[in-house]
């Protein structure tokens, strides 16, 4: 690692101020960022640790809406249970020690194309709350490792509308345990949303044909006849584009069958 300073603000306001330092970078749980720094792939001047920002911690429910602070760990989300499918997803990110450090804000800010949270946020139509604005999930994810976040902008919370039924199915990449293909299906009064992670060179995406079919008939059988194009799917040593496209359909069907 190149050296850097560590700032530990206690408030969002202090965090925003600290992020004004040239080449400052926000540090959530560090479970991706620290390994990246070890490889000397980044050289921030300052890491702004968000762990101590009390306003960014914890989960609150307001009717059918769940607000999760940006610095809330995966372990906390996993233990929560207000949004069962989301808790189940969080309980399978990384491993227990990683879940005790990694945060939802960090995961969404990084937008790894194989991360789990982006699928939940997109399928749930979540709102990403930042230090300067609120961003709809549909506008937030802009491709692999790319988001709508501006320089210095920090995710302070994520608001999830709690669906009638939902489920996340992850087919793991066996080495990293990230998603080779992960599909989050969420059924709301106004329709079904399906978001896919792990599969596409464009990062997380909505499978709109499946959404239409499932909105009409929320059953795995509704997917019969649909297929996912392998164009622009990721191909690597763990699976071809065709295989990933196939898995998207399989995992979607399983998520629908398991949704509760």
């Amino acid at each position: 690692m190149y050296n850097f300073d560590v700032e530990k603000p206690g408030t969002v306001a202090d965090a925003v101020a600290a992020m004004r330092t040239e080449d400052a970078q926000a540090l959530g749980g560090g479970q991706t960022l620290i390994p990246t720094l070890k490889q000397r792939l980044a050289s921030p001047s300052t890491l702004v640790s968000l762990k101590g920002v009390a306003e960014m911690q914890g989960i609150t429910r307001d009717g059918d809406s769940l607000r999760i602070g940006g610095a809330t760990t995966h372990a906390t989300v996993a233990a929560d249970g207000n949004y069962a499918a989301l808790s189940a997803l969080a309980s399978h990110i990384g491993d227990p020690a990683v879940r005790n450090r990694g945060t939802i804000g960090g995961s969404l800010a990084n937008n790894d194309p194989a991360a789990c949270y982006p699928a939940a946020a997109l399928a749930s139509g979540a709102t990403i709350v930042t230090t300067s604005r609120e961003i709809a999930a549909d506008d937030y994810f802009q491709g692999m490792f790319d988001t709508a976040l501006e320089e210095g902008e920090i995710i302070t919370a994520v608001n999830f509308p709690i669906p009638q039924a939902a489920n996340y199915q992850k087919f793991v990449q066996p080495a990293s345990r990230f998603a080779l293909v992960g599909v989050f299906v969420a059924k709301y009064a106004d329709g079904v949303r399906v978001a896919v992670t792990g599969a596409s060179n464009e990062g997380v995406f909505r499978w709109t044909e499946a959404e239409a079919a499932l909105s009409a008939n929320f059953a795995a059988s509704a997917l019969e006849g649909l297929s996912v194009s392998a164009d622009n799917m990721i191909a690597d040593l763990h699976g071809s584009a065709t295989y990933r496209a196939h898995l998207v359909k399989v995992m979607t069907g399983r998520a629908v069958a398991a949704a509760s």
């Binding site: 560590v6 890491l47 227990p96 020690a97 450090r101």
Partner: peptide, 18 residues
Amino acid sequence: VVHVDGVAVKSCTMLAAE
């Protein structure tokens, strides 16, 4: 793996300053 404030963490992926 060590325990920090009672929970398991990977000490190679946490800064001493934290």
